[in-house]
Design a binder for these strands. Structure first.
Lengths: 224, 224
DNA sequence: GAATGTGAAGGTTTTCACAGCA
DNA sequence: TGCTGTGAAAACCTTCACATTC
């Protein structure tokens, strides 16, 4: 019953903390499947290449979930972490752009596992409209706004070319959707109450390329 | 001729700086196409939703590329930034796991544009081995190690299920590849001289979900 | 004894503000 | 005058270390 996200005290939680909370969720899912009862911050840290202090600090922002001397109860902590991340429920998601990336995402199992249900697809290509992808009929993008509203969509994944992404996002915003996951390599303009996250796969390769060229040892080594 | 990455002075460059450098590259590509001659830190910042001071600091780690009173020369800065990121050349990339995500990445245009050439594909599914994807024949994963070496592969994209990712990565490491882009939701163990970057699309949706549930205004607002 | 929870210390990144130059 | 380049200040994040609890 006690939700214990802190009564009114909410501090600002950093982006990195949330990303690590996702990692804890992943590790805890694994531990639960393997029937571990408890886990220490040390063990969680080892599994995700972090420090024990970091794990404890992150969790402490949201409450006291552990027992001194013992560690954290796996199943219980996993439930708490789900709740923190807001994935203790189903989210209705739409996907715009049924191209290479888009169609791959329709079948992406991690989404479903975590409650992100893609329930609508949109495209502007006449050959795709009306076709069936994993049981979902592709809608005409012309009806984006009304169908998002009528379908009670809460999140939209944008997987269209950069040149048209902004127009589509403008429409999404008009449909009162407040969360967008963007795969187009462009900085989208949205009102301040709309959340946008960008997924840019080329950027990660660029990071690798940088690291190789500068022969940066991955774990903080050898500056000149 | 002057490379001006600083003579011997190399400081440690933060991950965030490198990510922003990628953003500058993107903005500069656009500006170049639109025939802009120069650009100010203010304008670059505006385009990527950053601050002008941030832009100047980031660039200053690598040299003095601008002209006071004028700004930065677009084409020249783009060339410098390419060089910093190590994308002023072609990288030979292999992809393991020709599933949903994998096949989408084979056709991903941003990779090619930036010099990341996928030249080899691997899978363990007999039905896929030998088949042709965008002109590349899928190889048997049994030959991973030798083919990576013979093909002079420098980077590998891993798009296989989490359960087998570590085994495959062990093989990749044995083939002396030093850069891995991992799409499997698992923390890979590699020696300290191997660079790994993780791409986890579910994590970004989790972030959105967190933001919505906690009704965090995106731009630092409204704590309690 | 073992491991959490947390102030305080230490480190890193961002922002400020202004000198310096075209 | 306009805008860069950069030390110094401020903000932020991580690690330390230890009192606390089981």
């Amino acid at each position: 019953m006690d939700i214990s996200l802190g009564p009114t005290a909410r501090k600002r939680i950093s982006e990195s903390t949330i990303h690590r909370i996702s990692l804890y969720y992943r590790a805890l899912s694994f531990l639960e499947k393997e029937n571990f009862e408890t886990v220490s911050s040390k063990e969680l840290a080892r599994r995700e290449k972090l420090t024990p202090a970091q794990v404890r600090k992150d969790l402490s922002f949201f409450g006291s979930f552990g027992t001194r001397g013992l560690g954290y109860p796996v199943a219980e902590l996993k439930a708490k972490v789900s709740k923190i991340l807001g994935i203790d429920r189903v989210w209705r998601v739409a996907l715009v752009g049924v191209g290479n990336i888009g169609s791959a995402l329709v079948s992406y199992k991690e989404f479903i596992k975590q409650g992100f249900h893609i329930v609508k697809l949109f495209d502007n290509d006449q050959r795709k409209i009306g076709s069936n992808h994993k049981g979902i009929i592709v809608s005409d993008i012309k009806n984006l706004r009304t169908e998002l509203q009528e379908g009670h969509i809460e999140m939209v994944v944008v997987a269209v070319p950069a040149t048209v992404a902004q127009y589509i996002v403008d429409d999404i915003v008009k449909a009162d959707v407040k969360a967008i996951l963007n795969f187009a390599p462009i900085n989208l303009k949205v009102p301040p109450d709309v959340h946008v996250r960008n997924e840019n796969m080329a950027m990660e390769l660029e990071y690798l390329s940088f690291a190789m060229v500068n022969d940066h040892a991955p774990k903080g080594a050898g500056k000149v």
